[in-house]
């Protein structure tokens, strides 16, 4: 394989140009401020200290809260779905998984717009409520709408890895557990859930990380007043035009995300250590294959 090694070079070049350079630019912008002339920049930490203002910090925490909430609801809704799908016949499973994946083929904006038409005051849901004699409820531009939109968007990323870890599980382990006297419920908590944890962690990673920096869905379903870190960064770049402050906030968010990733990675490593050679989730399987 050695003679093919050079083929990697263009890939590395692209990676450098498209990923590394923009990142370096963000770092560069974050630590500088505009000088008097266009070409003069001077080093400063002011962009970071500026963010320590309670108003800005609360935006960050609101984003974290939304991320946590989205992830929590996705898990509570997604796990039972994944579990039930994993119990189905193989052909049914393929169809159901396909049905769950299909919405992700459609543009995010389209899907969110359709939620607007469902949740708005003369929307589908309220029409339904009226039809059965209930008062219409104001749902659009509330936290509820944002959570619904977020969960709807990210749910497949929770279901798929959990489903994978459940179907990879050796069925004889469940039989062994029952054979040893555990009821089906005990078996679920002691064996099934425990062994699907790596899938759960993968799902949490895939949902939580993008959902803290989400800004399109909250903006569309939460209305303008719904300020999140994602919206905030977008504003800095597009509306206000302060690239330096925007870059600094991006960097702060990135550090947060890396820290959380590290936590999740450590947790996954712990479960993987104890599950070792056994079936893990998606990502961990892929990782292991690479090592081999």
């Amino acid at each position: 394989m050695k003679q093919f090694r050079k083929l990697v070079t263009p890939y590395c070049l692209w990676l450098f140009l498209l990923t590394v350079v923009p990142m370096l630019l963000i770092v560069f912008y974050a630590f500088t401020e505009k000088g008097t002339a266009i070409t003069t920049f001077s080093f400063t930490l002011e962009n970071f200290t500026k963010f320590l203002d309670p108003i800005f910090v609360s935006v960050l925490f609101r984003s974290l809260k939304l991320g946590l909430l989205t992830t929590g609801v996705c898990f509570l809704v997604g796990y039972p779905i994944a579990y039930m799908i994993a119990k189905c016949k193989d052909t049914t499973q393929t169809i159901l998984i396909l049905l769950i994946t299909i919405p992700t083929w459609i543009n995010l904006l389209m899907r969110t717009y359709s939620w607007i038409s469902i949740l708005s005051n003369n929307g589908l849901l309220n029409k339904l409520f009226e039809a059965i004699g209930m008062n219409s409820v104001n749902m659009l531009y509330t936290d509820f709408a944002v959570i619904i939109g977020m969960v709807y968007n990210f749910l497949p990323f929770m279901i798929l890895p959990i489903h994978a870890s459940l179907t990879n599980m050796d069925k004889s382990l469940l039989e062994a557990s029952q054979d040893l006297g555990a009821s089906p419920i005990q078996t679920f908590f002691k064996i099934t859930f425990r062994l699907s944890l790596s899938g759960v962690l993968t799902g949490i990673t895939l949902v939580f990380l993008p959902s803290i920096s989400a800004f399109v869905i909250p903006k569309m379903l939460g209305g303008g007043q719904y300020s999140l870190i994602g919206n905030f960064i977008e504003q800095q770049f597009i509306t206000i035009g302060n690239w330096h402050f925007g870059s600094a906030v991006s960097l702060i968010l990135a550090v947060f995300v890396i820290g959380l990733m590290a936590l999740i990675f450590m947790a996954e490593k712990r479960t993987n250590n104890s599950v070792e050679e056994e079936e893990g989730g998606w990502l961990s399987n892929a990782k292991r294959k690479k090592v081999r």
Partner: peptide, 14 residues
């Protein structure tokens, strides 16, 4: 009744 399974079915997380 207890069973010894073909591929042992030992719990990998214990």
């Amino acid at each position: 009744i207890n069973t010894v399974f073909q591929k042992y079915a030992l719990f990998p997380h214990m």
